[in-house]
Every structure is written in structure tokens, then in C-alpha cells.
């Protein structure tokens, strides 16, 4: 447990040291930079955000982000700058567009489908108990008959 915790803190420390290695201009808010960076994808190592990545391109892009922030650009302007060069892919949160509509609506369609299937199953099950009961009493009678027959047979022995 202690080992695990030590490992985690080591990981965190490395991550932090990568991110804050760059010297920030005084008018750049670190908090804002972190938030913005975490929404941007590193294109070299695609499962990392700009904030997490140590790839050379990610560092360059982070540098650009910092410079633009220092120049007073808004988050939207900075995002647009990157999208113009690298496409929507650079954003972790894809915008709502005709190509991405399935991405946004798909889960809800699946949810609806699951609900419909669930409803059908539940409905069918609710019709089952009566049949099951009839069957079980039938089985019980049969069992009792067998039991009695068996008892009768053993008494004869």
C-alpha cells in the first residue's frame, strides 16, 4: 500500500515537472493554461493531452499556446489556431458537426434501443409467473405421487 502510494506520488511528480518545466510569462495564468492544455490532444502520442505529453511537437505547441495567451488571445482563438492547422482531431471534445453527429447522438440511440429491449424482456417475464406457477404445482403433485408410491413400495419389503 505504501509502495503503491509512493509510486503514485512519483508519477505525479514527474508529470508535474514535465508540465511546469517551461517558464511562464507573468501575465499567463497557470490554472488557465493547464485547463486549456488538457483539452488539447498531442498529435504525436495521441492518447496524451498537450499538458501530459513530453513529445517535442507537444512542447512546441505548448510554447505557442503560452505565447498566444501572453499576447492576450482568448481560449477560443487559440483553439481555432490549432484546429486550422491540425483539424478537429486536436480537440479532445469534438464539435457538433454533420460528420460527428453520430458520435454525439449514437449513445442516446443505443440507450433508447436498450430501453426498448429491456421493456420487451420485462413484459414477457411478467407474463411468465402464472405459467411457472402452474408448472411448479404440477411438478409438486407429481413428486408427491412418486414419494407415496415409493413409500408404499418400501413398506412392502
Amino acid at each position: 500500500m505504501i509502495k503503491k502510494r509512493a509510486l503514485y506520488s512519483l508519477l505525479l511528480a514527474t508529470a508535474a515537472s514535465c508540465t511546469f518545466a517551461m517558464k511562464l510569462p507573468p501575465n499567463v495564468d497557470e490554472e488557465r493554461l493547464r485547463t486549456l492544455e488538457s483539452e488539447l490532444r498531442c498529435l504525436v502520442c495521441q492518447n496524451q493531452s498537450l499538458a501530459d505529453s513530453n513529445a517535442s511537437l507537444a512542447q512546441d505547441l505548448r510554447q505557442q499556446v503560452v505565447e498566444q495567451m501572453a499576447a492576450g488571445k482568448t481560449n477560443t482563438e487559440i483553439r481555432d489556431y490549432l484546429v486550422a492547422r491540425y483539424g478537429d482531431f486536436v480537440l479532445y471534445k469534438p464539435p457538433m458537426k454533420s460528420v460527428t453527429i453520430l458520435l454525439w447522438v449514437g449513445p442516446f440511440i443505443l440507450l433508447l434501443l436498450a430501453a426498448v429491449v429491456g421493456l420487451i424482456v420485462v413484459r414477457r417475464r411478467s407474463r411468465l409467473p402464472a405459467a411457472a406457477e402452474a408448472m411448479s404445482s404440477d411438478l409438486q403433485q407429481q413428486g408427491e405421487r412418486l414419494w407415496q408410491a415409493d413409500a408404499g413400495a418400501s413398506r412392502k419389503d
Binding site: 517535442s56 511537437l57 512546441d60 505547441l61 492547422r85 491540425y86 483539424g87
Partner: peptide, 13 residues
């Protein structure tokens, strides 16, 4: 040298 033009061209690899 600084990779600026590369960034403008959307170079990532």
C-alpha cells in the same frame, strides 16, 4: 530550425 513553419503546415510526424 524552430519548427514554426512545420506547425503552420500542421506537421505532426
Amino acid at each position: 530550425t524552430d519548427g514554426r513553419t512545420g506547425i503552420n503546415y500542421g506537421v505532426y510526424g
